[in-house]
Nucleic acid binder design. Structure first.
Length: 300
DNA sequence: AGCGGTCAAGTTGAT
DNA sequence: ATCAACTTGACCGCT
């Protein structure tokens, strides 16, 4: 069986990650603001441990960490360094404990920076902010032993080839810590596996193959071919994504995610070991447990 | 305590 | 032109 991954949050389990808004933080004096952020970070570090323990108890081998695990960490005005928080050392220690727990129990962790991280934007400040965000997530990755920070190709700006050249150029300015973890994922509108595989080979980063996106945004490769080619880009256990369309493939918005994974959407050749599959489904842990149950019934 | 408006950020494509 | 979609509703300030 593959290793299944849970994304960021829980549907039923009472495990919550907290955040705040820049507006609210901006209204406070700096001391009060840092106190509040300190609180949220500590609670999130504790929640992460609970999340990992839940995964361990339920044989969920991978957990994706929310980008806001340290809220507004890279905000241009209200951002901060963890060492400047009142309990910064304890917060780091709690994350390191999470990393030790994950390692001991073979739980893989990863990040998926959100849509604002665009490495190939023509706007210099967008690239700068993206790099700041990647460096922050790499810092936490080191504490918790996360081995993947996964982003999309970014914008097209009228010319895919040129846009991907910019991606490669800007990749070079990243720290080694980010480079070692950065992966690129095919998306549902712009970049297909066919577009991205040459980038993977050129700068030696893995392809996170999203089969749902590939079904929305097709190229010359069959799903099986893309699976094989994506696997070849990995120097460690490959990591893929799956989801099912909210109203079926004939529905109005097939790119929207369903609560659960439809067994029919699961490629049978993905039911193998040495593969991580993140389950992108709105029912979260329930969806992970369900697809695993269905797959084991299917074999029996 | 409950409720509704708001939330840092980019890009694309549907309406 | 506006808005939803993207890993996801949660937070905050008002009553």
């Amino acid at each position: 069986m593959p290793r299944f991954g849970l994304c960021c949050m829980f549907k039923e389990q009472p495990i919550k990650f907290r955040t705040t808004t820049a507006t609210s933080i901006g209204k406070m004096d700096r001391l009060k603001a840092l106190e509040k952020i300190d609180n949220l970070c500590m609670q999130n570090a504790e929640s992460l441990m609970l999340a990992l323990q839940f995964c361990n108890q339920n044989d969920i081998g991978c957990f994706r960490v929310n980008s806001q695990i340290l809220p507004i960490k890279t905000h241009p005005e209200y951002g901060y360094e963890v060492k400047d928080l009142p309990n910064g050392n304890e917060i780091v220690n709690q994350f390191i404990k999470c990393g030790e727990f994950a390692k001991q129990n073979d739980i893989r962790t990863c990040f998926h920076p959100d849509q604002f991280v665009v490495l190939n934007s023509p706007k210099e400040n967008v690239v700068k902010a993206s790099i700041r965000e990647l460096e922050y997530q790499a810092e936490v990755s080191e504490w918790i032993n996360a081995d993947v920070i996964n982003i999309h190709g970014g914008g097209v700006y009228g010319n895919k080839t040129e846009a991907l050249k910019d991606f490669i150029q800007n990749f070079k300015s990243l720290s080694q810590s980010v480079k070692d973890r950065l992966t690129i994922e095919n998306d549902d509108k712009s970049y297909t596996p066919e577009d991205l595989l040459p980038v993977c080979h050129k700068i030696n980063i893995p392809l996170v193959y999203d089969v749902h996106h590939h079904r929305c945004n097709k190229d010359i490769y069959s799903l099986r071919e893309a699976t094989e080619k994506a696997k070849e880009t990995w120097n460690r256990e490959p990591l893929f994504h799956i989801s099912s369309p909210i109203d079926g493939w004939q529905g109005r918005k097939p790119q929207r995610h369903h609560d659960f994974i439809d067994l029919k959407d699961f490629p049978e050749y993905w039911n193998v070991s040495n593969l991580t599959i993140e389950i992108e489904a709105k029912a979260k842990e329930l969806a992970v447990l369900q697809i695993r149950e269905e797959l084991s019934n299917n074999i029996a």
